[in-house]
Design a protein around this nucleic acid. Sequence first.
DNA 1: AAAACACATTGATTTACGTCAACATTACTT
DNA 2: AAGTAATGTTGACGTAAATCAATGTGTTTT
Lengths: 264, 264
Amino acid sequence: MDELLYSPETITLLSLDNLVSNGRKMNIDTLKVACSNCNLRELCMPLGLDNSELQKLDEIVATRRKVKQGGLLFSAGDTFSSLFAIRTGFFKTCISTEDGREQVTGFQMAGEIIGLDGIVNDIHNCNAVALEDAEVCVMPFAKIEEFSRDFPVLQRHVHKIMSSEIVRENGMMMMLGNMRAEERLAGFLLNLVQRLHARGFSPSELVLRMTREEIGSYLGLKLETISRTFSKFSEEGIIEVKQRYVKILEPDALKKIFNPQTCY
Amino acid sequence: MDELLYSPETITLLSLDNLVSNGRKMNIDTLKVACSNCNLRELCMPLGLDNSELQKLDEIVATRRKVKQGGLLFSAGDTFSSLFAIRTGFFKTCISTEDGREQVTGFQMAGEIIGLDGIVNDIHNCNAVALEDAEVCVMPFAKIEEFSRDFPVLQRHVHKIMSSEIVRENGMMMMLGNMRAEERLAGFLLNLVQRLHARGFSPSELVLRMTREEIGSYLGLKLETISRTFSKFSEEGIIEVKQRYVKILEPDALKKIFNPQTCY
DNA sequence: AAAACACATTGATTTACGTCAACATTACTT
DNA sequence: AAGTAATGTTGACGTAAATCAATGTGTTTT
């Protein structure tokens, strides 16, 4: 394995929780929080807000909340009251049918917003599970709406976040409806690494926070197919895989697989 | 065929355009419009607004616009400026890859809102195609945002519309990722007929506005599979199919196929 | 250090749906 | 009314991914 610009350890760093946990699966941290000082400022809700607006946002983010690996931030059926901005950690959202089939609907990382599905019916529609120890900012939706009325920039931002989720899901429908296993996995890897890169991580290396089964569920495939496709990419020299660690050796090859036309 | 409570002709009625068209593919109707008098009041944007709020909404809906069958309301790449409320007619939204594969992302009918995908990037992300002659209310998004600030009920309503689209697409991911052809088509039919019923049509009969190919694209299946599955349902006495006309004979059987557990 | 467990890989076989192709029906054109 | 195009149906066959199963690897527990 080549020497790494970003070691797997470094990649994990952002998500580690240095504070002492009280041992419960979840706990509410009543410490006051300041968006204006948050190092996710560029990614999270505050995007594009000036100082006075940032201060207002501080009022929205009343509390933080920690979720241990494997813990639930919320479950389908819970009453909806807040959106959550991920500070650290990694989540999956998933829904299940009565007969126990599960569909992962998304993977969310630091700076992303979770819980939009609850707005329609004031009830959460999916489960949000922490795939590693995580911390989120709790943003009561009533407050978001209240401040949105005073701050058009915030209002617009909220709308863009929701629209972007709609567009992402449109893309997933294309994946699930039209693409073959290799295309889906290529698209998945490119998307993941791009979002990690936007957060200061390597543009070519990543450590998967989810199992093959969870990737498969997200992509509408079985875990064996994910494993086989990883192996195939690896044999072709496109990626290097060692369990959860993935290094993209030929990003262009991956792009070509995902979207045959654009990369000729 | 039994005598019909709602004939196919009746079902078509709502969508017919009685006004004279000027012959162009699309045209902008500058006639002032009143939401307060609209017969879609219960379904469309105004849901839950009182009289003074309804009047404000009238100001948002500046114009109407007609789209002929096969015409485009907007295309991917068009600059986004307005949402559209469907007054009459039926639309599909779809996206395509560079190499020409098409994915239908939704079918929209009277009272539903179209164009939410454009908000993130101020550019439409999909094509909206009229599957029959249609008329929409043009709602400039800047105005929607402006009035949302003054009318919390409207603000909440806009949020719910967006959230509901997210939830719908979550459901589609479940369909596309986990369900077999029969389950998908059963779910599709149940959803269509339920939405039509909410608009005063029959709870058991419908006339499809889309081809087998378009249904297939939406459901991630090929047109032959749609055709075969229709035939199978028909042979089993669950539905009666004659081209675009469908009558649901055994709604419970359909529900059981869609969701094996809930109906035992 | 060994045992137990969760997760990942790989092979053999099956299957649901896709592909290809012929034909039927309806709607559109002139 | 006849001819043409678009859409829908049905059959024969092929295939990508699922299923079943065995084995490997890494991590946690005691």
